[in-house]
Design a protein around this nucleic acid. Sequence first.
DNA 1: AACCCGGCCAACCGCTAATAA
DNA 2: TTTATTAGCGGTTGGCCGGGT
Length: 320
Amino acid sequence: MGRPPCCEKVGIKKGPWTPEEDIILVSYIQEHGPGNWRSVPTNTGLLRCSKSCRLRWTNYLRPGIKRGNFTPHEEGMIIHLQALLGNKWAAIASYLPQRTDNDIKNYWNTHLKKKLKKFQSALDPHMASDSTTSTSHQLNIVSRRSLSEGSLDNMASHASSVTLKNNQSSTYASSTANISRLLEGWMRSSPTQKTLSNTNHLKLNASDDLQDQETPAGNLVSRHEELESILSYENLNNVASWDRSTCDSTQSDNKLNPRCDSIHDDDLVPDRDQKNKQIIRCESSTSAPPLSFLEKWLLDESAGQVDDDQMMELSPMSSV
DNA sequence: AACCCGGCCAACCGCTAATAA
DNA sequence: TTTATTAGCGGTTGGCCGGGT
């Protein structure tokens, strides 16, 4: 027999979370740490299933999550990575640690797809309709330009009539941001975080960046630091372990596995603290593929292109 | 003022792989 | 080894909100 069910199916509340529920959840996690979601509804009295609790935490309450408008650079990163990886939102999100995969997915579906379409038709109607030019190739061209020139809006100037709305859920979003701030002290001092830090694991909960977000300048600095941390993480964890053969055979398809199975838990922590191990496993599932691979792919791709020279000035890796 | 419509996004759904009993 | 459950992921949906008429 397997394990007992995580929660009773009857009496489960659905729909938007209330601030009160958030506080209960955050308080519980503050005390016990994330993980063991099965016990959360029981121990907190929340009428939510464990899955809902986990999603609420990972997508909304987790410290370090940045909400609101995407910067032009983030926009470029998303376009670029989407062209590269496809709809692998978790993989894409691993390059933007402050954004959740859900956030990126929503932003892509609601903003970027339209912008790209508009841009493509403005840039070159022939290219847009040319069936011999793959969509991913087109998007690569577009995304590289976006990265090097700042944003799609700057390029297709007319598309810039599309102004990004302010965060519509700002009232409650700001309150959850405050909840997240409550956790900062804990995140800095918790044993779990120390374990992650000691094992050089990619730290997705960049709680310090909360302060960085206060100013645009701080934003740039935090972007820079995020990517540097990713690079250092990859270096520390032996980039060579990435399965290049898999990657090379599937440049733009869906075999890019963000889970980095080659990094074994046992290499990271002694096999005695099951809780920490579980968290490590959870975090490693969103670790990014080596950037050097992405760079290589981009360089290879550019070899056969006509007017990509100026686009190669900046890439997600070299632009920082 | 009332209604309609479309955009946005948080949350849910359903699937797969991993894991625990 | 088998089976039930969890965790993670991508796709989809439903409700809220703002703008237009």
